[in-house]
Amino acid sequence: MAIFENMGVVLALLGAVTAALAAGIGSAIGVGMTGEAAAGVVTEDPSKFSKVLVLQLLPGTQGIYGLLIGFITLTQIGIMGGDSDISLIKGILYFVACLPMAFVGYKSAIRQARASVSSISLVAKRPDQFVKGMIFPAMVETYAILALLISILSIFGINGLPV
């Protein structure tokens, strides 16, 4: 099977992998950063464990979104079973459709981690303000969700295109 004859599926797979990889790396960095800060607070005050744990996990969602996009793309292009005969144009389109989740996932996970670290500092001093502290990093999530949405709509839309 010559690679150029199957360039479509190669590009589509590359898109799926990029989305899972970039968003996953972003989340790993983010959860690592928040984990360090959370450990700092728990060292001094173990009773705040549950509160800081929630804040630590917030930047982890982008990795899940990346995995979801990767999984949907794989099912659409037939790698998980079915017909994997994808035209070059469709392959490019799948690749491009995965990019919003890859880029926004990576960047938003790290920015959300910084907001979470700041909120962990807030909870360290004012545990009663936990809910407000959770809202600040959760705002960053909006943009990861928007990217997830546009990637999902694009991937499902490509299948019906006559190209």
Binding site: A39, G40, D45, V117, A124
Partner: peptide
């Protein structure tokens, strides 16, 4: 600046005293 995340979080609690 990210290498002091743990330390700063502990200091935040210490500041209470």
């Amino acid at each position: 600046e990210d290498q002091y995340l743990y330390a700063v979080a502990r200091i935040r609690t210490k500041e209470l005293s």
